[in-house]
Structures are given as structure tokens and as C-alpha cells.
Amino acid sequence: MARLEIKKTYKIYIGGKFPRTESGRFYNPKGIDVNVCLSSRKDFRNAVVAARAAQSSWAGRSAYNRSQILYRIAEIMEGRRAQFIEELLQQGSTKKSAEDEVNATIDRWVYYAGWCDKYQQLFSSVNPVASSHFNFSQLEPMGVVAAIASESSSLLGLSTLIATAIAGGNSVVALASESKPLCSITLAEVLNDSDVPGGVVNFLTGKADELLSHFSSHMDVNALVYCGNDSKKILKLKETSADNLKRIRAYAEERILGEKGESPYLISDLNEVKTTWHPVEKIGAAGSSY
């Protein structure tokens, strides 16, 4: 008798745990024989709470440590290549494109792992003010980032948004591709195994139309990053984001999925510039008035 296959239950990922949606609802992505959580507004709220709680200590980690954790993600993904390829095939990829996407994704994690302890040097400045002050500008994470993944590329698009956000010290609540959600949950499992503290990355699955306005109107979300080409969605996100002046970053799929998806400017896009002033005493220096 043939062995009965063990089927995977796809749950969502909040605060380092894998709950089912509180709504108890599910949906079946077209052509895929699994029940996927249809996340609700409340799930999103819970995820934001978890992300907020985790953010400052994540940002407080040393850049070196964040870098190693991102590299660890790549290591663990490498070990699960087969699973990701299998899921991509299930979601309709060809074998070649599935392999290419997994390779590109793992390499992209490695790429951003390398930026964690460098982007600050690239984007910070010491500003030569005319008065006797030491003045410097540096980047600081925006805080909680809501990420709406690429619909067409369930793994590379999603990974890029998350990598750029967390490399820069943000925490993330991500919405997986509606039609291709499987990889996202497996990616969550990878993150969970990779020393990424619970709550730093949170995944929801579900319908974008239901959730988008909640993402953009939530007052405790600092930034929203959208990868896609749907101008109606972008308009809606922008309009509803104004309530707390959320920073909106909308990237075309080609940008994120192509070569230009590797850029430190994607990290700085999710950072604020903070400028600090401090007096410089002039005693003992030429022209001192003491």
C-alpha cells in the first residue's frame, strides 16, 4: 500500500508563532490544493503589535549581528531549496524558473546581509556647519513597515521587500502574494529558524482587496512598501496613508525583481535621516574668547 502523504497546513506568522487566522476563514488559491488563511483586520492588528514590540530591540542589535542573521537566512534557505522549488512548481512555475527564482532569492539575502553594516557609512554625513557645533546626519529605521508583496513573484519579490526593511532595522508585517502564498509561509519557517527575533517579520496571507486599506490606514504603521504595477491600488494606498503621513514606497515589479532590486537605496528608502547637533568647545583653540 502506498504511504499516505503528510500534507502541510499553511498558517500565518505573527510574533514568532504560527497561529491560524483569528477569523477562522480560509481560501483556496487558484489551482493549488491547499487551504490558506484568509487573514482579517484583527490579524493585521495583532501583527502590528508584535512588530512594534520587536522593532526597537531589532534596531538596537549591532549591524554586524543583523548582517549575520540575514546571512543565516540564506544558509537555511539553501538547505530547503527543494521545498521552495516544489512550492513554486505547485504555484505554476516551470522547473527552470523555479530554480532561478530560488537561486536569485538566496543570493539576494546574501547581498543584503552584506549591506547591514555598510549602508550607514554610505548615507550618513558630517555636516560642516558654520557655527561651533559638531553636526552629523545618520539613518534611523522608520519603524514598523507594512509590505505588500509582488503578486507575480511570490518568493523573490517578498524576500526583497523584507530584506531591505529588516537590513535597515525596521520590523515588517508582510502580505503574501494572494495567488501564490505557499512560499511565504515556508519563508516564515526559515526566518523562524534563523535567529530572526519573533515579531521582526510577520506574515499574513489573504486577499489584498480586503486588507490594503487596513494596512495603509493603521496609525501605528510608519511606512508602507508596495511592489506591483496596479495604479488603482497605489492610489488607494496613498490616499488612506495620509491619516498619519505614512511613508509610501511603490516599486514596479521590474524594479524589485530585476537587477535594480539590489540597491542600498532600497534600504535608505525605509530610513529616516536624523541630524544631531552638539557644541564644540573652543578653549585652547585659535581665536578662543575665553
Binding site: N135, L245, E272, T275, W277, H278, P279
Partner: peptide, 26 residues
């Protein structure tokens, strides 16, 4: 906050970026 003054306040300079976090704009 986007600008922090330590042991000073309300200093401005063209070389020094100015602007806010959150509802202070972007």
C-alpha cells in the same frame, strides 16, 4: 525626531538636513 539638539537648540545651517519623523512630515 529628525533634528536633535544636544546642549543647544534652534540652530540651522544650509549643510544640515532638516525635516521630521511621523506627522511632522517627510
Amino acid at each position: 525626531a529628525g533634528v536633535i539638539w544636544a546642549n543647544t537648540f534652534n540652530k540651522f545651517d544650509p549643510t544640515s538636513p532638516f525635516g521630521g519623523y511621523k506627522e511632522s512630515g517627510f
